[in-house]
Design a protein around this nucleic acid. Structure first.
Lengths: 211, 211
DNA sequence: TTGTCAATTGTCAGTGGCTGTCACTAGCCT
DNA sequence: AGGCTAGTGACAGCCACTGACAATTGACAA
């Protein structure tokens, strides 16, 4: 077990994160000041900044956890799967097991609400995109290892991850704007987009028939 | 011709932009305050904010011009070209004619230096990515029109643009970090990446042989 | 030309994110 | 019990950014 100090720290951090998410999803990101969060938790503003690098960091902490979770899922995929297939399966797994990562802080629904805030707040969206791109670097490394390649000389790992990442973020955006805001809908969107990717990139487009 | 007032405004804006780029590339983005820029031009800080939405906006103004230029290049591509081919040609054209867009403010080399600053400054990179993603929405619309499709029902335009965009940004990053910082190198990287995209996404990877 | 109107600017005051410093308190360890 | 150290609060200060108002300057008609 841990020392009392560490437990206290953990509790403070969690309280800050929880309150931050609560306020961001109710009053909006810009409508919430760091003082609001600190006051609600009962600590000084200075203490908030000791736990989070910035307001942004608190808003994206949960997102970062899910990204790490996804990367782990890719690592855990059987080695015989082709790269794109491994990414695809890992994403679907990631969505299916979202609650395992997020529930310790807030219920999944609250996280999804936060996601909407991120997507609709320019500065948060920007930061989110940057982190996604950073994650791609890690993913490329993972793919390269799986295939026994060096990403510095063989561009295919990074290439695959970049295209895949582009499609995933486009899927997120459509998920937000299309009406259905359920994990099931996200699953379906993901599958159909990944299936269409090949044909869409290959030369001329045949007439499109929705499945 | 225009009124004196408009010419003055134009000159002020251009002076601000030029000085901003100058300072960002020499002292770095964070190392430059808005007051530095305003003082160097001889206007008040308030005036700076009347011409640019923020410090960020000044740093990315040139980038935005090149993006618009690229979108136009896509629009101008012959209708018979398949979508991905049109994007590819337009990008290459865009790099070849960079000077036409940028020279009116600063020499191309200075712009390339600014690009490095953007890529290496987290907050700027984030904003740059967000703008790129916004541009993708426009591009998807353009592709859809070319093919006579509705992007709301047919995901292929957005899909293509998303994958393409991912690859392009991955190319930018590699361009920065690989040694050769010339437009020619960028051209070659672009071509080789786009050529490898198809094979990289298709199932298992064959042994890679550099061309 | 001159007077009126509108656009542009500077000044000032204030908010909010974020950081450095320093004294103080509270858990830890012998 | 008492010294050590990690964590905290209070305070001062920087910088990006905004609203409000007054002063200036170009535009345009009488």
């Amino acid at each position: 077990m841990e020392t009392l100090r560490e437990r206290k720290k953990q509790r403070t951090r969690e309280a800050l994160l929880r309150v931050a998410v609560e306020l961001f999803t109710t009053r909006g990101y810009e409508g919430t000041t760091v003082d609001d969060i600190a006051d609600a938790v009962g600590v000084s503003q200075r203490t908030f900044f000791r736990y989070f690098a910035g307001k942004e960091d608190a808003a994206l902490a949960l997102d970062e956890m899910t990204v790490a979770h996804f990367v782990e899922a890719v690592r855990a995929r059987p080695a015989h799967e082709p790269p794109l297939q491994a990414l695809r399966q890992a994403v679907l797994e990631g969505w299916d097991t979202l609650h395992e990562v997020v529930d310790s802080v807030v219920p999944v629904e609250r996280f999804l609400a936060l996601y909407r805030v991120i997507e609709s707040t320019p500065v948060l969206l920007a930061a989110h995109l940057r982190r996604s791109v950073e994650a791609e670097e890690v993913l490329a490394q993972v793919l390269a290892e799986r295939e026994g390649l060096d990403p510095e000389t063989d561009p295919r790992p990074r290439l695959t991850v970049a295209a895949f990442g582009g499609v995933m973020r486009m899927t997120e955006r459509r998920w937000m704007t299309d009406g259905d805001f359920s994990l099931e809908a996200m699953r379906e969107l993901t599958v159909s987009h990944l299936e269409l990717l090949g044909p869409a990139l290959a030369g001329k487009w045949l007439p499109y028939t929705k499945t």
